[in-house]
Amino acid sequence: MTTWPVDDPAAIAQACGRVDRGFVVEVGWRWKTSQIVRFGAARFPRVNVAMREWPCWSSLDELHGLGEAAAIMGDWLVDRAIEQALERRAPDPYASR
C-alpha cells in the first residue's frame, strides 16, 4: 500500500507485507524513501514478507505489526516525523521493488 497527503504529494508512506508475517514500512519523499525499523534491529535472517506485486526480503526483527505499521505511516503523513524508538535505514538493495 502506498499513500501520500493531498497537500504534499511529494511525501510518501508505503507498507508491504502480510498480517501473518509483518510489514516493511518505508517513508520519505517520492524517489527517495527510508525503511523504518526499531533501533538495533538485526538485518538477518531474511524472510520473504510480501506478495507477488512487491516481493521484498527483510528480517523478522525489522518488521512491524499491522497497527504499528499504520501508526508509523500516519505519523509520517501528518507530522513528517517518526517515533524516537525507530530509526531510518536505507532500503535493502537486494529486495525487489
Rank of each mutant, 00 (worst) to 15 (best):
T2R: 15
T2Q: 14
D8F: 04
P9W: 05
A10M: 09
I12V: 15
I12T: 08
A13Q: 04
Q14G: 09
A15S: 13
G17V: 04
R21E: 08
V24D: 00
V24K: 00
V25M: 03
E26S: 11
E26W: 00
V27W: 00
V27Q: 02
V27S: 01
G28M: 01
W29Y: 14
K32G: 07
S34M: 06
I36F: 03
R38K: 14
G40E: 09
G40V: 07
A41G: 08
R43V: 00
R43E: 11
F44V: 12
P45I: 09
P45H: 11
R46C: 00
V47I: 13
V47R: 09
N48W: 07
A50V: 02
R52Q: 09
R52W: 05
E53I: 06
E53L: 10
W54D: 11
C56N: 12
C56S: 03
D61Y: 11
L63G: 02
L63A: 01
L63D: 01
G65Q: 11
G67K: 07
G67P: 01
E68A: 15
E68P: 01
E68K: 12
A70F: 01
A70N: 08
A70K: 07
A70R: 09
A71N: 12
M73L: 09
W76T: 03
W76H: 05
L77Y: 00
L77F: 05
A81D: 06
Q84K: 11
Q84R: 15
A85F: 07
A85C: 12
E87P: 01
E87I: 06
P93V: 01
S96F: 10
